[in-house]
Each structure stands twice: as C-alpha cells, then as structure tokens.
C-alpha cells in the first residue's frame, strides 16, 4: 500500500496541475452561473492520515453542506464539494435571486439547486481531467447532505479506510470576490486509481 503512494515530486506536481486545470474549469463555470468572480488557491495535493482529513475543512464538527458524486470510469473515485453552511446559504440566495441573508435553511428547491451546482462543477472538473489524462470519467447523480464535516467525509473515508490508513486528496478552495462564498472541492481517487492516473500523464 505504502509503495503505491510513493510519488516523486514531479508526479505530485502533475497531480497538482490536474487539480489546477480541473478546478480552474469548475471555477469558471461557477463564476458564469452566479456572475461573480471566483478565485481559487493553488490545489493542495497531499497524502494525509484519514483521521485528519476533516481538519482540512475546519474540524469534524463544523457544519457544512456537502455534495457528493461518485466518479465512474478507468480511474474511479469520489468528488465532494463542501461549503460551510454560511457559504451554502449565500450561494442559494445568489442562485435564487433572493436578498442575501434570506436563506437560513435549505428546502427541496435549494438542495436541488446546490446539487446541480455540484453536478456542473464535477462535469467541468472531469472534462479538464480528460483533456489532461485522456481518461474519460462520468459522475453519478449528486447526493446532498447538510451536517457535520466529519460525518459527511465519512462516506469518502470509509472506502479508503478499507484499503489503507492514508488518503490522497486533491483539494482546491474557491473564494468569491466578496468573500461571500468559499468552498472546498475534493477529488479523492480510489486507491487503485492513482496509479492509473499517474501512468496516463506519463510523468516519472
């Protein structure tokens, strides 16, 4: 198991670039939908102990909205788009043309809108992923939950936990120009997929 994750600095860079291009595409899509500039940070590519993944988004009891998509194809994995509760409400207000601050809980329509955003972001991300790696992948229909970050991340971590004690995450943070929205986009390849991805980019 450990061997599989023994990546060279160049391979880490290649993964970071995948995150960069993928998230860049997603950020552009989001920016066009909500008509706001969206910035993103340099993607973090890290091999982290499974139990510390929730700390990446503010700790396991931080309340977040998570849109989860399973990714099918040659390099299967999971996509998780996490928004702090406040950001999710702000995004719903923006999408639904409501006054900012109007949303304080999510109804069916709000959830549906956020899932659609997850869908669009995942599609944009995977398109860029395909351009880069020539690996074609499709997302499942999205699922949404608003809950503690630890509980939501469980879904992804359990699958990795079966295979090892660490998670390879490619994480990008989005920020809107007025700081009303920030979100974390995670691509978490299944353990076996990493090798496929690395081979496809052909970096040693």
């Amino acid at each position: 198991m450990a061997d599989e994750f023994n990546l060279t600095p160049n391979q880490m860079d290649a993964l970071r670039e995948i995150g960069n291009v993928g998230a860049g595409n997603s950020a552009t899509a989001l920016s066009q939908i909500i008509n706001r500039r969206i910035d993103m940070n340099v993607p973090k590519v890290a091999l982290v102990p499974i139990e510390s993944v929730p700390d990446l988004v503010g700790g396991p009891d931080t309340i977040v909205v998570g849109v989860f998509l399973r990714v099918y194809g040659k390099a299967p994995g999971n996509i998780l788009f996490l928004l702090p509760q406040k950001s999710a409400f702000f995004l719903v207000d923006t999408l639904m043309g409501k006054t900012h601050g109007a949303t304080d809980k999510l109804d069916f329509m709000d959830e549906s809108a956020l899932m659609e955003i997850g869908n669009i972001l995942a599609g944009a991300y995977l398109n860029a992923f395909f351009t880069f790696t020539n690996i074609s992948m499709l997302p499942s229909i999205p699922a949404l939950a608003m809950d503690m970050a630890g509980a939501i991340l469980n879904v992804v971590l359990v699958q990795l936990g079966q295979m090892g004690d660490t998670a390879m995450v490619i994480e990008t943070e989005f920020l809107s120009e007025d700081d009303g929205i920030n979100g974390h986009f995670f691509l978490v390849p299944d353990p076996g997929s990493l090798e496929t991805i690395i081979k496809a980019v052909g970096v040693e």
Partner: peptide, 23 residues
Amino acid sequence: VGMADYKVGKSPATLISYGLGSC
C-alpha cells in the same frame, strides 16, 4: 477521541468524539 481512535479514563473526565457519520 479522534476518528479510528479510542481513549480510556476515569471520573471526572469526559470523553468526546466529534462528527460521526457511519462510524
């Protein structure tokens, strides 16, 4: 108590674990 972890102790301590989903 973190994920995939355990702690033992005695009174008056409280043991707490945050954000369990399927765990």
